[in-house]
Amino acid sequence: MLSIIRSIWLTFLHLFHKTETIQYPEEKVQLRPRYRGRIVLTRDPDNQERCVGCYLCAAACPVDCIALQATENEEGRRYPEFFRINFSRCIFCGFCEEACPTYAIQLIPDFEMAEYDRQNLVYEKEDLLINSQGKYPGYNYYKVAGLDAGVKGKGEGTNEEPPVDRHSLLP
């Protein structure tokens, strides 16, 4: 009983506290670098698309708002043929970024993307792709993956032995 009265009283005292509200848009908010806002697709150090179309972001998305189609260039390097995020469904949970094995999809501290027309919230690859490596400069997935997709030959990647001579029986 007393605790109830006490909490009523303490709540009442908040009348005299300073308010925390930031008067956006007159005042801008300072966001952290890891703030989960607009979703972008970043590029490799060689300026190619980082996304390899593995569908993990789409699978991780709890509202299923990512749709893409993987395709390959003649060297076997995969990239998305289309990559679509329906931001009218997106909840900015960041699961796609967590799921991405190539650091391609990243959430950045920009949230000012409201539209009057819902249709304009459907972002295609052209709208998502940025000309930057984002939070992970220097990383190139194909350098650490075994696959030869035109980035490096077999056995030339990080921590790889030269290819096995299959005609040899030597140990």
């Binding site: 009442f12 908040h14 009348l15 506290h17 300073k18 308010t19 925390e20 509200t21 008067q23």
Partner: peptide, 8 residues
Amino acid sequence: LALWQDRL
């Protein structure tokens, strides 16, 4: 409510 919750 806002004032009691430190809002505007």
